[in-house]
Design a protein around this nucleic acid. Sequence first.
DNA 1: TGCCGTGATCTGTGATCACAGTTAGAGTTG
DNA 2: CAACTCTAACTGTGATCACAGATCACGGCA
Lengths: 236, 236
Amino acid sequence: MNLPVALNLVEPLDRQTLGERAYAKLADLLISGRLAPGEKLSLRAAADVLGVSIMPVREAVSRLIADKALEVTPNRAVRVPLMSAAQFRDLTKVRIAIEGHAAAQAAEHRDKGDLVSIVSAEKAMRAESEALTPDLPRAVELNKTFHFAVYEAAHSPILVEIIRALWLKAGPVINLDLRANPERLAKGDAIRFHADVRKAIVAGNAAAALAGIEADISGAADFILSRGGLARAFSG
Amino acid sequence: MNLPVALNLVEPLDRQTLGERAYAKLADLLISGRLAPGEKLSLRAAADVLGVSIMPVREAVSRLIADKALEVTPNRAVRVPLMSAAQFRDLTKVRIAIEGHAAAQAAEHRDKGDLVSIVSAEKAMRAESEALTPDLPRAVELNKTFHFAVYEAAHSPILVEIIRALWLKAGPVINLDLRANPERLAKGDAIRFHADVRKAIVAGNAAAALAGIEADISGAADFILSRGGLARAFSG
DNA sequence: TGCCGTGATCTGTGATCACAGTTAGAGTTG
DNA sequence: CAACTCTAACTGTGATCACAGATCACGGCA
């Protein structure tokens, strides 16, 4: 191996397959709630929009189906799963258990870099949601950024991956609702809980971090359930 | 809808796609440790063995890659991921947190049917591992049956699905090792912890159930780590 | 007017082909 | 005899074609 030293600097360019890019695109649509529960998704139509053949879309969709972020109906149609209130409650319970655990771990294992990204993410989201005319899609994105800044601080790649899969399921329900009803954002519950979580993690208080995440998740879930938006899930 | 009553008895025949069957087959190979870490897997070869074209295999493999139960190397080869000791420790910690939580939930929410399947699964595994010449593949299968009988008793489909994904990652490491070193099975640690878990769940004691699962998982993990079988993971 | 067959058009699934990149081994050269 | 080169056989990825089944609207029968 006799190479010019300059070549040691080049990093292998990331050859992302089209399938991966299609997956990232669709996953983003789901997590941010731009694909509503019950909405159908045609492979060929999606391939058309993305400007590729249906092969990469097939791979992406089959992965999302494996994650249960999409489902194929008995009639061979791919759609965003409809969620009953019971299923949503189960999902919420699991999210509280796992994301709460991750927040507690974060409080114990965070390093200086974690604190920087958590603090700045919390500040960015508060600024956006207290603005006169909040940009909802941006607020949704910043909410995600804050939460994952926390979870990353647990330093457990496997845990983060599991939570990402949970958000894939919860995103269509929660963020679609947030888009339709921005009043909860204005009410500022989430902002308050986020501040609690930030303080707890800075202080290294695992129990408080867990409690803050639990309050944030169950607050949003109660809001959704109280609106009864899931009832119509049965009709489809 | 005026149908002959006899037609009310027919249940919709389950049209499993070839891709699903291929996935189930490969997942079973992984979970039972018959595919060793580092082992390569050719799409065409697998398709040949399964007697189908590569398309169903592609779908199955892409799902397993999404689960991180398989990985594709930079050189475009699919293989069972090698796991460093640090990764294995992370996986073990997450398994203890989540499977322990599931066991605690099981102790609180189990119904009569759950108790029946848990007790019989525990009995079956004890019988097999105390036999004069234990059938290792069968013991591995019975171990899985017992654990999932417990987790199912939590009545949380989402939780069970997450644990299944964790087993997909842990299977190749743990069960491959068990096949190579049956002495741990003979030692009877697992059997003892299983009995603890069974008693705790029957008694509705969540804390004890959690402790039993934790002991079972960390016992097996310590055994693997002590053997240093993961060190060579770096060489590949 | 109400119902049922029917065909065009959509769906996902599977097979096959094409391609670029990698690997391994045979053959050659020093 | 060792090392290098080149080729042939592989790898996964993507596109295209073929097909069975589902949907829906149109038209004819009762």
